[in-house]
Nucleic acid binder design. Structure first.
Lengths: 218, 218
DNA sequence: GAAAGGGTTAAGAATTTGTAAAGATTTATC
DNA sequence: GATAAATCTTTACAAATTCTTAACCCTTTC
């Protein structure tokens, strides 16, 4: 569970934030002044910090350099462009002006927490078929399959339009950047090869021909 | 020099952005439609993307998933909270509403580029391989390896994108700051040499070729 | 039953990748 | 500043993979 620190002296806003964040599944810790915040940073290293600018004892600006390594979102009533620019340049990763919509703040928090984790992958999934368009891997019923560039491109288009008929001309057009010389004849062969590989791994038919129109995934 | 892609069909706004960014020291490339944007992404990997939502041919929402790995800042006239939340959840890293202050946008751009630059850690690790990007040391299965500058740059890119296929053109583009004269032929040789060194130390293959696409770490 | 669309196979053409060696360039050393 | 070492690029060619063509069959439609 991700830990979020709220550094805010206003009781009302602080409570509202704490409630919303707890409900969203975060673990919340709070500080009401700059000195308190410093202790909190040391003791319970939060994954993200929400910081008000006007704090008793210490301006938020002075606190920023102490937060190195932890993303800080500034929540402030100061709406001036120069305020924003200065804070962002000083190390804050985002700046939200009061009054704010809690939904938007939650989304911005999610963005910052999302970034550290999640290795990039783009998964396409239909019944029985799985394709990672980033690593160029394909599985049928969990069995890995080796596809050539063109076969991969064809299957990708079909999987991006599941249960839709894709015309031959549309298919040819969309793979033309990879293989400009591919004609209808050639496409037939690629589809045939693709089917053979899919069946060998998955044990059943995946690509269905729609007479006179094109192809679709079963 | 950092490359920023502007995906915007409005001439006036696009020009203004391009001018401001150029003046701020960025290298700007532009696209005026969704399909154009896709080509641009593939050909010249930008470090950051500024995207308008309402594009001819393709809504920005559909373009977002194709930008994986590159931070996208959405610049839109839609100011609704739900619009923002949806886009941020879909993968955008920030959302700026028109009209906007160019100063603030520049600051937000700087934040995202700052983050991308400061590597999460100086140590890159994948199965069996370890790289210290600061001291320029590399180990395979614990055995130290001496790599040349270009070999190091290539391996670094592959290790920053584990299990992802990196196209040859993208690879060339990203090492061009180190070795501007390196062509596809030369790249083949570097990869070959790199493989030999890795195998001599680690005893197995690490770099895998994906036919017609590029290379990836096994 | 003829015509057109779809499916399969095999083989040669074309493309891409892998490796070695030599020349060109940069960097280090004395 | 000259020489040696290291590194990078080019060239050439072999090996592997993939693409297209062409021929032939089957199925559907009219």
């Amino acid at each position: 569970m991700k830990k979020i620190a709220i550094i805010e002296d206003d009781e009302y806003i602080g409570n509202m934030l704490a409630e919303a964040l707890t409900e969203a599944g975060y673990e919340v810790t709070r500080a009401y002044s700059g000195t308190e915040a410093l202790m909190l940073l040391e003791k319970r290293r939060p994954d993200l910090i929400l910081m008000d600018l006007m704090l008793p004892g210490m301006p938020g600006e002075s606190l920023l350099p102490c937060c190195r390594g932890i993303p800080v979102i500034v929540v402030s009533a100061k709406a001036g462009v120069d305020d924003k620019v200065n804070l962002l340049m000083d190390g804050a990763v985002d700046y939200v002006t009061k009054p704010f919509q809690i939904k938007e703040l939650l989304a911005r928090i999610a963005v910052r927490l999302r970034e550290a984790q999640a290795p990039v992958s783009a998964l396409l999934e239909t019944e029985g078929l799985r394709m990672d368009t980033v690593s160029h891997e394909v599985w049928a019923e969990g069995v890995p399959i080796h596809l050539t560039r063109t076969e991969f491109a064809i299957l990708k288009i079909l999987m991006q339009n599941p249960a839709q008929v894709v015309s031959k001309s549309s298919l040819l057009d969309r793979i033309s950047s990879d293989t400009p010389d591919c004609g209808e004849n050639s496409l037939k062969v690629h589809i045939s090869n693709l089917r053979r590989k899919l069946k060998a791994a998955g044990g059943r038919e995946y690509i269905e021909a729609v007479w006179g129109i094109g192809f679709k995934l079963a």
